[in-house]
Design a protein around this nucleic acid. Structure first.
Lengths: 225, 225
DNA sequence: TAGGCTCTACACCGAGCGATGTAGAACGCA
DNA sequence: TGCGTTCTACATCGCTCGGTGTAGAGCCTA
């Protein structure tokens, strides 16, 4: 709809979406009024309807633009940190820290919108929901999975299902592991959280006692080649 | 407020909260109208204001009741599956499956409300938010952490921070690892997801090759006693 | 039986919101 | 310069919603 014929001045459109991101992130879809969005964007109420057919249409455009930006950034971070592995554990930790720093960057509102999507899931057309999944978190996870597969192919990881492993890694270093998600956390807490998450991702929590290790070592020797 | 003097008939109050849970879960706080809640509860609009001062007051009561029920159920499941460990990996997997089965049980709306809380976080008084954290997910995580600590004390796990480990376990077997959260998943997909999550929780993904294992085994032998 | 609660049905108010209409100003392009 | 598009300001419509008022019916208890 809106994409076919992007009527109106492009800068106005950007301003509208930018303001809409801010207000949708803070107030959610229903609470955010078009008048408030117009004011935030420094634009007339009427102009919004010149660029978008509907409030729902605007929301969808916001989701799309927002998702695109965040996914691009994350894919870039993945390539930057996992393109060349020096020390696997610290490289993964750096990537996790880079992800978390996005939460307090200028992309912060976009993550609030993701929470809105999660809550609004019953009122969003399933096709739009799938499109969001594919161009957003799904794409990031897929890209991360590809990098993990490379690492596994070099023998540094044992990965059965790369997509699943990517999901695990992202969860283990996600903000879900922090007490308070809103406030800017002190770097120490975040660092230890990420370190613990990466450590769990690599080693797990199972006890590997002396006998167990010996048994496994002999087994590994027996089955070598 | 409402707790000090629970005015009105208790069954009416329960009916109201039950209906409110349904509609808040489906439509969110703003969308769910009091008229619709009254209709859903089979109760007059006016009666709601006889039991609760406000829409916000009702929402808070709903959160409290909802959180209590889910947390009780989860704590119970933890005790049932982790009270006596037969085989650690399968016991953990069973617990994960039990958790996931809650998503499609009659407590399903409660989890939708959690998503609403996550989205509405900017419009909920921080004290109420903390109270929710403490009586809900915080309590469950703490309880699970206690069980994990017991297991670690018996030497089956190596856990530095039980609370963190509990969070990791819950994330690794959470519905976040499923493509579509809404539809009832086929049991096979859920089972393999949980198995993979528990496996990652126990063992991690790091390659343990022959030399590495030998080195660790000798080190373990050297440092025995 | 009488008094006090509670529930119900219904009407009502005021506010906010989505969406549209309109007239004129500003701007870009031929 | 002149035409078409876009933006703005303002007014308006219809609807929904939160919250209140009121009068009467049902119910329990003293």
């Amino acid at each position: 709809m809106t994409k076919d014929r992007p009527s109106g001045q492009p800068d106005k459109r950007r301003a509208i979406i930018s303001g809409a991101v801010t207000l949708f992130a803070r107030d959610g879809y229903t609470r955010a009024s078009l008048d408030a969005i117009a004011a935030e964007a420094g634009v007339s109420n009427r102009t919004i309807y010149n660029h978008f057919t509907d409030k729902a249409d605007l929301f969808q455009a916001v989701i799309q633009e927002s998702t695109q930006r965040v996914a691009d950034t994350m894919v870039d971070l993945i390539d930057r940190h996992l393109g060349k592995i020096i020390d696997l554990e610290s490289d993964l930790a750096d990537l996790g820290l880079a992800f978390l720093s996005l939460l307090t960057s200028d992309l912060a509102p976009h993550f609030a919108i993701v929470r809105q999507i999660n809550a609004e899931t019953e009122h969003i057309p399933p096709t739009a929901l799938e499109l969001w999944q594919d161009t957003g978190p799904g794409r990031v996870k897929h890209h991360l999975a590809g990098r993990l597969r490379e690492i596994a192919d070099r023998g540094q990881l044992v990965i059965d299902d790369p997509a699943r492993a990517a999901g695990h890694l992202m969860l283990l270093v996600s903000a879900e592991n922090l007490r308070d998600r809103a406030t800017p956390h002190d770097r120490a807490e975040v660092t230890t959280m990420v370190a613990a998450g990466v450590h769990a991702f690599l080693h797990g929590y199972e006890q590997r006692d002396e006998q167990d290790l010996k048994k496994r070592a002999s087994h590994a020797t027996r089955t070598a080649h």
